[in-house]
Structures are given as structure tokens and as C-alpha cells.
Amino acid sequence: MLKSALAMAVIGFVAFAAAWPSLSQGLQRPAVSIEQATKIARDRGLIVIREIELDDGKWEVEGRNQSGEKRELHIDAGTGTVLRDERD
């Protein structure tokens, strides 16, 4: 029984070690922080930010401008370039 438990632990460790490179890629910080993305969105006229999330290398920001219009921005998380700015 001790041998089987040890074997399972070794198999689990090997599986985790094999998956580590792909797991660690998801933990890397984007070059453009959430604070910088927020500033970019505010500079583009959003005064209320409802939601901001990092997805597929871009910040997706939803909010409203001064006239109350719903807007959605996509900001490149590597460069800070606004990729999309449209009505939501």
C-alpha cells in the first residue's frame, strides 16, 4: 500500500511538472497594468467604468462616457494601443 501511494505521488508530481510551463504563462503580468488600462479608458472619455478584465492579451473595458452612452474598449495589454472603441 505504501508503494502504491508513493507511485501515485510521483505520477502526480511528474504530471504537474510537465504542465508547469503552460500554467506559468497564464500567470505572467501584462506590460500594461490594470491601472494603466483604466487611465487609457478615462483618457478616451469613460467616466464610469463598470467592468475591466484581461482576456486573450487585451484589456476589455466596459463603461459610460459623460453623456451616459455605453462604451466598450479593447486595449492591447502589451502596448496600450486601443484596438476597439465602440458603443456597447
Rank of each mutant, 00 (worst) to 15 (best):
Asp85Cys: 04
Gly57Met: 13
Leu27Arg: 15
Val10Leu: 14
Glu72Asn: 05
Thr81Asp: 03
Ala9Lys: 04
Ile75Asn: 00
Ser4Trp: 10
Gly57Asn: 11
Ala15Thr: 06
Leu46Gln: 02
Ile47Leu: 06
Asp56Ser: 10
Gly78Glu: 14
Leu6Gln: 12
Leu54Asp: 07
Gly45Ala: 08
Gln36Met: 12
Gly45Asp: 05
Ile52Pro: 00
Ser24Lys: 14
Arg87Gln: 08
Ser67Val: 07
Ala41Asn: 09
Pro21Val: 13
Thr38Phe: 04
Gly26Ala: 10
Ser67Leu: 09
Ala9Val: 03
Gly80Ser: 02
His74Ser: 11
Lys70Val: 09
Gln25Glu: 15
Lys3Gln: 04
Glu86Cys: 00
Pro21Ala: 10
Ile40Thr: 14
Glu35Asp: 13
Leu27Cys: 08
His74Thr: 03
Thr81His: 05
Lys3Thr: 09
Asn65Pro: 07
Gln66Asp: 12
Glu51Phe: 13
Ser67Asp: 12
Leu2Val: 06
Ala31Pro: 03
Leu6Trp: 10
Val10Phe: 13
Ala41Lys: 08
Gly12Trp: 06
Ala5Thr: 08
Asp55Phe: 11
Arg29Asn: 14
Gln25Trp: 00
Arg50Glu: 15
Leu54Trp: 03
Ala37Asn: 01
Gln36Gly: 05
Ala18Ile: 13
Thr79Trp: 11
Ile40Leu: 15
Leu83Lys: 08
Gly63Val: 02
Ala41Gly: 09
Ile52Gly: 07
Leu27Tyr: 14
Ala15Tyr: 02
Ser67Arg: 10
Ile34Trp: 01
Gly45Thr: 06
Val48Glu: 14
Met1Asp: 13
Gly68Trp: 08
Asp43Gln: 15
Gly45Cys: 08
Ser67Trp: 03
Ile11Asn: 00
Ser4Leu: 12
Glu35Pro: 02
Glu51Val: 00
Arg71Ser: 02
Ile47Cys: 01
Glu53Val: 06
Gln66Trp: 05
Met8Phe: 15
Gly45Tyr: 07
His74Met: 08
Arg84Pro: 00
Ile34Gln: 11
Trp20Asp: 04
Arg71Ala: 02
Leu73Asn: 04
Asn65Thr: 06
Gly57Val: 03
Leu23Phe: 12
Asp55His: 12
Ile49Trp: 06
Val10Lys: 03
Phe13Pro: 00
Gly80Gln: 01
Arg50Gly: 08
Thr38Asp: 14
Ser24Glu: 14
Val10Pro: 02
Lys39Tyr: 05
Ala37Glu: 03
Arg84Thr: 00
Gly80Ile: 02
Gln25Tyr: 07
Glu72Leu: 06
Ser4Arg: 12
Phe16Glu: 02
Asp43Lys: 11
Ser4Ile: 08
Ser33Glu: 08
Val48Trp: 10
Gly45Trp: 10
Arg87Lys: 07
Gln28Pro: 03
Thr79Asn: 05
Glu51His: 15
Gly80Lys: 01
Leu6Lys: 09
Arg71Gln: 09
Lys70Leu: 13
Leu6Gly: 04
Ile47Gln: 07
Pro30Ser: 15
Thr79Gly: 06
Ser67Gln: 13
Glu69Ser: 12
Thr81Leu: 03
Met1Glu: 11
Leu73Met: 08
Gly12Ser: 14
Asp56Cys: 07
Pro30Gln: 09
Asp43His: 11
Ile75Pro: 01
Gly57Phe: 14
Ala18Val: 14
Leu23Glu: 12
Ser33Ala: 08
Gln28Lys: 15
Ser24His: 12
Glu86Phe: 01
Arg84Ala: 06
Asp43Leu: 10
Ala31Cys: 04
Glu86Asp: 04
Ile75Glu: 00
Glu69Asn: 10
Thr81Pro: 00
Gln25Cys: 01
Ile75His: 00
Lys58Phe: 05
Gly78Pro: 00
